[in-house]
Design a binder for these strands. Structure first.
Lengths: 225, 225
DNA sequence: ACAAAAGTGTTAAATTTACACCCATGC
DNA sequence: GCATGGGTGTAAATTTAACACTTTTGT
C-alpha cells in the first residue's frame, strides 16, 4: 500500500443573520458566502472556512473565520456536522467540520462586503462549490428545528425586545405567519422570557412592553443538551 | 512558528443494544467498550474506534470498527458529533468523529466477549478514558430524543413485531412505563407502522397482531432530515 | 377622531392521559 | 375456569388554534 497524503481537516461555518428582504417588506434569513479564488471550483461561491490549526479549538476556528468574513462575533455558535465523503473534493481528501452561527445585524456588517464576500438570501442562493448547498440546507433545517425548543431567538436580538420583535424573528426563520395573541401566550407560558417594567414608545400605537430572556444564552457544545 | 505533528483524525462509535437487565427483569440499554492496552489511559475502558483511512468513508470506518468489536452489522448508524478539544488527549491533537449505532441483539454477539471487550449497562458504566463518558451521555440523549420522532425502533427489531415488543423498546430506551392502550393508538396514528394479517401465538393469552414498519429504515446522513 | 399595533377574552378543535372493560388464548 | 396480555371505549385534562374585542398611543 502506498503512503498517501494526510487527510486535511478544515472548519467551515454557515453564518445566519436576519435582514430585510429584497423587497424590503420584512426580514428574512441571509448568509454570507465567499468566492473561491483558486482551484478547485474557482469562481464558485462557498462557505467561509479554513484549515484547522493544531493549537486551535474547533469552535475558535469557526469564530475566527466568521469574524474574518463579517467583522462580527457570533452570538450563537454550534457544531453542525462533519462532512467527509471521500469524493466531496477533487484531489485531496478533506474532512470539514461545519459550524453554524447566528449574528446580530446591527449596522457595521454592511461595510465588509467586498468583491469576494457577499450576503445572499437563504432561499435564493447561487450555485455553491462542493457539497455546500447540501450543508446550507441542513443548517437551515437545524436552525428552524432548534428555534422551537430553545432561546435561540436571543442570538438575533438585543438585551431588551418586544414580543412583536421576537415574533418577527420566528416568522422570518420559520417563514410563516404566527398569530400574535397565541404567540404571546405561548412565549409567556414557556418561561423563556421575563417582562420588564419598561415599554417601547414611538410607534403610532400603544407602547409595547419590553422583555428579556430569562436564561443568559444558548450553548455551543453537546454538554448541555 | 514550529511545524508540529499533524492533527490525528479518528472515528469512534457508541454502539447500543437492548439486553436483559442484570436482574433479568426486562430489557435495558447496553453498550460494548474496549479496554485500552496502551498509553495514554492504559487499562481504562473506551469507545471502540480507530484512525480514519484516507480512502475510507467516515461511516465505513465506524461500521468497520463496530463489526470488529461486536461481530455485528449496524442496523442504524448516524454521526453524532466531532469532539476535538485541544486538551482532550494528552500528547497529540486528536479530533474524533463519533458515530452512534444500534444493533439487533439476536444471539451471536455473546461470543465476541473477550478479555478486552465487554458489554456494560448504559446506566452503570466503569470509569471511561478521555472524554468518553461525556460522549456516551450525549449519545444516550440523542437516542432518546430521536426515538420519539423517527422509526428508530426498527433498528432494534426484526421485520415483524408486535406492538408490545415495540413498546418494550420504547420503555427500555426512555426508561419509563408507557400505557399500552395509548401507545397503540399513537403508533397507529403516526403511520410509522402497518398491520399485517399475521398474528403471533404462543403466549398464554390472546394472540398479538404482527406489524411492520411502513418505511424501510432510518438514515445515516443529514441528507434526509 | 382614526389608524395601528398592543394586549385580553372566548370558544372550538385536537391531542394527551388515565383507566375501565371486553377479547382470545394457554394452561 | 382463570390468569394474562391483546385490544377497544370513554371521558377528563391539557394544548393548539382561530378570531372577536378592548386598550393605548401617534398623528
Amino acid at each position: 500500500m502506498i503512503t498517501s497524503a494526510p487527510i486535511e481537516l478544515a472548519v467551515s461555518t454557515v453564518i445566519f443573520a436576519l435582514r430585510p428582504a429584497a423587497d424590503s417588506s420584512r426580514r428574512t434569513v441571509w448568509l454570507p458566502l465567499v468566492r473561491r479564488i483558486r482551484e478547485p471550483e474557482q469562481g464558485k461561491w462557498a462557505l467561509p472556512g479554513g484549515p484547522l490549526e493544531p493549537d486551535q479549538e474547533l469552535s475558535e476556528s469557526a469564530a475566527f473565520t466568521l469574524n474574518e468574513t463579517t467583522g462580527l462575533s457570533p452570538s450563537y455558535l454550534e457544531q453542525l456536522f462533519a462532512f467527509g465523503n471521500v469524493d466531496r473534493s477533487p484531489g485531496n481528501r478533506v474532512v470539514s467540520i461545519i459550524y453554524w452561527a447566528l449574528v446580530r445585524e446591527e449596522e457595521a456588517a454592511e461595510a465588509v462586503v467586498t468583491e469576494n464576500v457577499r450576503w445572499f438570501p437563504a432561499d435564493d442562493l447561487p450555485e455553491l462549490a462542493f457539497d455546500h448547498a447540501e450543508i446550507v440546507s441542513y443548517a437551515l433545517g437545524r436552525l428552524r428545528g432548534k428555534l422551537e425548543y430553545s432561546n435561540l431567538g436571543h442570538a438575533f436580538l438585543g438585551e431588551l425586545f418586544t414580543l412583536s420583535t421576537l415574533r418577527e424573528v420566528y416568522e422570518a426563520v420559520l417563514d410563516r405567519r404566527i398569530d400574535p395573541a397565541n404567540f404571546r401566550r405561548q412565549v409567556e407560558t414557556s418561561g423563556l422570557v421575563r417582562a420588564t417594567d419598561q415599554v417601547q414608545t414611538g410607534g403610532r400605537h400603544r407602547p409595547a412592553r419590553l422583555y428579556r430572556f430569562a436564561t443568559p444564552a444558548a450553548s455551543t457544545a453537546p454538554t448541555q443538551e
